[in-house]
Design a protein around this nucleic acid. Structure first.
Length: 547
RNA sequence: GCGCCCGUAGCUCAGUGGAUCAGAGUAUUGGCCUCCGAAGCCAAGGGUCGUGGGUUCGAAUCCCGCCGGGCGCGCCA
């Protein structure tokens, strides 16, 4: 396998720099793909950076770098570099070097784009973590799609990833749920005498009450009602997640933290470290020492703990389990917890880095239907569930759509668009390219394995070079998306790759008479198909052969 | 009032640790199936990148003010 052009260029550039500007010392060589293809395949701004530091003329330095002797030895890979603009050094790869990626894709297959981490880490992605007080709604769907894709991306870079779901089964809200079910079972409706103050009004509560009665449950036993309701809703949530293609490795329970004494342990540690004080009958944590705008209550006057205390205990557990990188995917309405949890962890001084854990906060999903916004209110019970979305638009479309926007961007999910115009969803566009290529390969009828060695020299068209260039970018797209927890970059990449293929397909025929050209084009198409499939898989979307 | 996030084409959104493009989809208009899948392709029109300053050779991108929107600001979770 030929060496990666980027690495070759980077090393050669470093050598040229050492020759022309030894006083620059060791400098990071920035090499990137120009957005504008007219500027070549690779471009470096190293002359601009170094010149600014040394007080030299950037364009002149760039000229000297271009004239360095090293390029002559790389003549079979790259054309002589060119200076452009204020001092960029631009590279244009030789056609053969550019097309070589096709063989690489076909050789690596499902692994193409994946990387072997120099230092594999134990990574946990915690997401969804919905409390068992109701069905999963659209916001949970966004979180499930995001979290699963982020986990897959990080795993693709060679790290060991665990998907974890944490649920709060110990708080006041669970008690409210139990009281609501009990009330419904007694025939009490919201607003009527006997209805709990913060009761859950959704229809699903009626269903749980009915099921509890059918199972012969004792209405007076609130603890039994609670267990039944939690189990019922957990089962429903699991079914929805399964239908969405999301699976977790570990489920953690808040109640277990109490049962195992982890919460008490953390409180004691904080007290003995002098990070707390008593005031107004409550126990406070000095979170202001760690950037919070005021101290926070840990133990209320009634003796119970506030919600973030078990959360700190939970994260101590994550750290002790060896997760050096933890990504928590949460709605932006929880952003204030970040400071508190990190403050608690820092106050314990057990070696946890200041920025640990990482958080990916996503904005709320606004659902629009019939031109009007559907308010999401769990208490009122009127909201769009994840199950609804899957039923309307299908799993692939929902997952692709929910993951194709930046997490922190506002998000409008137009139900009518998903319902009535499913064919306009970009996911079909990408899948269509995959199916189209599959169809061409089937029509060709020979063994695709042969294509892995097909000579590529016949690929002389500009469009073919563009496709090869796009294919070569895939590994970098994945690496960056994984580092930045930005799966939407993959969705946009796939959209673009599909677009370039459709364009090529319409302009040129693949199954031409001439055998050498035919097989070269088939190899290119097969490489595109493989890359599309690899990208879709990371997003949890299927890559159909027919549709 | 304070904190975090956001403001880019009619609409939905990319690009945002400077230089080398203001872009995609959609909508509108006009073309392309005797030929590998028309769920496709080609083309046109459409934006002083919320606004006013600042830094720089260069700002959608960085800094400050303002306007507009979202989310938080509880001994709720």
């Amino acid at each position: 396998m030929p060496r990666d052009p980027k690495t070759v260029l980077s090393e050669a550039l470093a050598e040229a720099l050492a020759g022309e500007a030894p006083e620059a010392g060791r400098t990071a060589i920035g090499l990137e793909r120009p957005k504008n293809a007219a500027h070549g395949d690779w471009s470096s701004n190293v002359a601009l950076q170094v010149a600014a530091r040394l007080g030299r003329n950037p364009r002149e330095l760039a000229q000297k770098l271009c004239a360095a002797p090293v390029w002559a030895s790389l003549a079979d890979i790259v054309e002589p570099p060119q200076v452009a603009g204020p001092g960029f050094v631009n590279f244009r790869l030789r056609p053969a070097a550019k097309l070589a990626v096709i063989h690489r894709v076909l050789a690596e297959g499902e692994r193409y784009g994946h990387a072997r981490a120099a230092k594999p880490e134990k990574v946990m992605v915690e997401f969804v973590s919905a409390n068992p007080t109701g069905p999963l709604h659209v916001g949970h769907g966004r979180q499930a799609a995001l979290g699963d894709a982020i986990a897959a991306l990080i795993a693709s870079q060679g790290h060991e990833v665990t998907r974890e779901f944490y649920y709060n089964d110990a708080g006041a809200q669970i008690r409210n749920l139990a009281l609501s079910v009990q009330a419904r079972a007694r025939g009490i409706a919201p607003g009527e005498p006997g209805w709990p103050a913060d009761g859950y009004q959704g229809e699903y509560v009626v269903e749980i009450a009915r099921a509890y009665a059918a199972a012969g449950g004792d209405l007076e036993d609130l603890e039994a009602v609670r267990r039944f309701a939690v189990a019922y809703l957990r089962r429903e949530q699991d079914e929805d997640l399964r239908a969405f293609g999301v699976a977790f490795d570990v489920y953690s329970l808040e109640s277990a933290l109490y049962a195992e004494g982890k919460v008490e342990e953390v409180v004691q540690a904080l007290v003995s470290r002098g990070k707390t004080y008593e005031k107004d009958g409550a126990l406070w944590l000095r979170t202001t020492d760690y950037g919070d705008d005021k101290d926070r209550v840990m133990r209320k006057a009634d003796g119970s703990y506030t919600y973030f205390v078990p959360d700190v205990a939970y994260h101590v557990g994550k750290w002790r389990r060896g997760y050096t990188r933890v990504v928590n995917v949460q709605g932006s309405d929880h952003h204030s917890t970040i400071t508190r949890v990190r403050a608690g962890l820092q106050a314990l001084a057990i070696g946890i880095p200041a920025g640990w854990p990482e958080y990916v906060l996503h904005s709320m999903v606004r659902v629009v239907r019939g031109g009007e916004e559907v308010k999401i209110s769990k208490r009122a019970g009127a909201y769009v569930t994840l199950r609804d979305l899957i039923d309307w638009a299908g799993r692939d479309a929902v997952r692709f759509f929910l993951v194709s926007r930046r997490p922190d961007a506002d998000f409008v999910f137009d139900v009518d668009l998903a319902l009535a115009r499913t064919e306009d969803n970009p996911v079909y566009y990408v899948q269509y390219a995959h199916a189209r290529i599959s169809s061409v390969l089937a029509q060709w009828g020979e063994d695709p394995a042969r294509l892995a060695a097909a000579p590529l020299a016949p690929l002389a068209l500009a469009r073919e070079a563009v496709l090869a260039r796009e294919l070569a970018a895939f590994p970098e797209v994945l690496a960056q998306a994984a580092a930045e927890c930005a799966p939407h970059a993959v969705a946009f990449y796939l959209r673009n790759l599909a677009s370039e293929f459709h364009s090529y397909y319409n302009a040129e025929r693949i199954l031409v008479e001439e055998r050498a050209l035919r097989e070269a084009r088939l190899a290119l198409a097969a490489a595109v198909r493989q890359t599309l499939a690899n990208g879709l898989r990371l997003l949890g979307v299927s890559a159909p052969e027919k549709m």
